[in-house]
Design a protein around this nucleic acid. Structure first.
Lengths: 220, 220
DNA sequence: AGAGCCTATATTGTCGACATTATGAGAAAA
DNA sequence: TTTTCTCATAATGTCGACAATATAGGCTCT
């Protein structure tokens, strides 16, 4: 994550971010139970703030809560991954369309510059920049849509789940250069203010990405 | 709302549903502040449950919370309406596509029967069934997608905002017969398992609906 | 032995009190 | 008169304790 303008001001914020990170990174195993009392001692805060943090995690679909029973970390499954990418396809496709409509010329130019720098780095062999670059690209498209619903659902919600799948299924790698070409084509469509093409290309880009992950999932 | 399988088991659930209803119906005015202490005396529950209810309202985008300041009911605006329908177009379009893929033949038959009965009622002049019928139709498509993300984002989230706009801008009316034709065509596409057409028709249906509301909004 | 009930226990749900922060009124200075 | 600082006040944030609920284990009955 290049720039995270999320800053914790309240104690519940901090606990929420820590818990979210521990879940996404797999430190707290997928499917495990989240005990409020246990976490309150572990993080040295009251049960109330842990409760609030867990509630927020539930809105991100990172945990599932049942009344009078408790919360469990979501279980990762092939079906869950497919559903997640179906929603991504719909939302990010629309985001690309709206980005082509609403992004300023300066924003577009900045994004083109970003792609150039990433391309040079990858060409130079620094493949570990791949995920950060990919994340950065998608962030810019989404925020470029200027649609607060899209922004919150994707950036505050789905992207953390996406990262959870990537991390816990060990998706380090490839698809670097091909993804870059796809990114380039999307940016070109946006620069040309071609809404239709931007949406189509983004949807295909996400479909390819899903197929790539699914292939790895089935081989593992 | 025909069938609401949401049942309150905890006190926070009940308070959440009451608050949500009061906000959507405009009993609590749009833009007003939500005082935790005030609401806790009004609804005769602890501040903790009001707090949790408000947090859930925030995840529905019905209120906006600022740390150490409080929560306000969202302000309705033309821009907000446009953004809301942009997201609806993306998500419900995908829902229609997935419904064409995953709905069982029985579900499709039931939906066709539902449309028939609604059509007869509207033909008979009972135009006040319009909204309930429309809501029911969209619910079935969304649940027919079998995608838990789509279901929760739309049914638990956006639809309440949509209804809030309808109620508070006084959208009683027309567009009954034309909407029915559109519904019919969508169901036909789903019955034919034509994913592409189902998505396109649903997106156009929502676009028309948005234009209709926007027209009223500008005239008012 | 197996099924069903019942109690013990641990967890979640709720509450009231205290701590901390934002905000506006009022006084003091320019 | 205007501006700025201070402080009172009221709201939100946090806490620990109590109440209500689910779950597991043992017990009884067949």
């Amino acid at each position: 994550m290049t720039l995270n303008n999320e800053q914790a001001i309240t104690s519940a914020d901090k606990t929420f971010y820590q818990l979210r990170n521990d879940i996404v990174e797999g430190i707290i195993p997928s499917g495990s139970k989240l005990s409020e009392t246990e976490l309150s001692t572990k993080y040295e805060v009251s049960r109330a703030v842990v409760r609030e943090a867990i509630n927020r995690l539930a809105t991100c679909h990172l945990v599932e809560r049942k009344a009078n029973v408790g919360a469990r970390v979501v279980a990762l499954s092939p079906e869950g991954l497919v559903q997640l990418y179906q929603v991504r396809e719909a939302l990010e496709g629309m985001a690309a369309r709206l980005a082509a409509r609403y992004m300023s010329d300066d924003e577009i130019a900045a994004m083109q510059g970003l792609l150039d720098s990433h391309f040079n780095k990858v060409k130079g062999g620094e493949s570990y920049y791949q995920e950060a670059g990919d994340v950065d690209f998608h962030y810019r498209i989404v925020t470029g849509s200027k649609n607060s619903h899209l922004i919150s659902v994707l950036i505050d919600g789905l992207y953390h789940l996406v990262r959870m799948y990537r991390v816990q299924l060990g998706m380090a790698g490839p698809r670097v250069t091909t993804a870059f070409d796809e990114h380039r084509h999307i940016v070109n469509a946006i620069a040309n203010r071609d809404e239709e093409l931007a949406e189509i290309l983004m949807r295909r880009h996400i479909l390819y990405s899903k197929n790539n992950i699914e292939k790895k999932l089935n081989h593992a």
